[in-house]
Amino acid sequence: MLITDLVIATGIPFFIQFAVWTFVYEGARAGELPGYSLDEMYLYYICVLALGRFNNAYDLVMDVSEHVRQGQLESFFVKPLSYLSYHFYIFLGGASLYFIPLVVIAVYMGFTGTGWVGPLGFLGLSVLNLVLCFIVGFLMSLAAFWLTKSDMIISFQVVLSSVVGGTLLPLSYWPETIKPFMQYNPFRLFISGPAEFLLRPSMALGVELLLLFIVWFVLIYGACSIFYKLACVRYSSVGG
């Protein structure tokens, strides 16, 4: 699984991005492209691909969906444990392995870059936003109570992470009209946000990301609580 993740899910997308951006930068005049230099662009994609694997709610959505579909929730409901906490610890365990590439990137940048503020902030934001990624994933997975299968939720989650999270294109490359949406959506926090901080660490960006985290955490956690209660009532209506 790890090899599949590293070679297919991470290596191939990076190679494509590498080829595309090398071509784009070769044809561009200096200063014409907004945001990052070519080297920074490579680093950005290494970061977002590593963050994309680290903050990945695919298994969470699949698990909840299967529990709902196969009626396995009953086994959890009669045990003195919280279903949310149960999945949170599973999620943490699954993500811990993918934290290693982030540490490697941070250490590399710490020794070769301009200091440790960026790398440490990058690691801190990544861990913090793992919690947000979990509750976003859990909220999306609750749709399984209303849907027959989880395919649509998973596709939705992948698309949102890739596009609005910034995996495909950094924030500075989007048109001005779309930028506010790209800047303040929760997916930016766990994909491009930490990568931006690693490349260009600043107090303003750190505060912006932290405030964004607090606002989205409160909103999504609240939504999770409400929809989970509704979902449990809905699940209870299934007899037999």
Binding site: G71, Q72, S75, V78, P80
Partner: peptide, 19 residues
């Protein structure tokens, strides 16, 4: 209400499902 103290005092086996 699924009180923890209650859940600690019960067991539940569903023949078709597994914990």
């Amino acid at each position: 209400k699924r009180d923890r103290q209650f859940l600690k005092q019960i067991g539940a086996v569903f023949g078709h499902k597994t914990s």
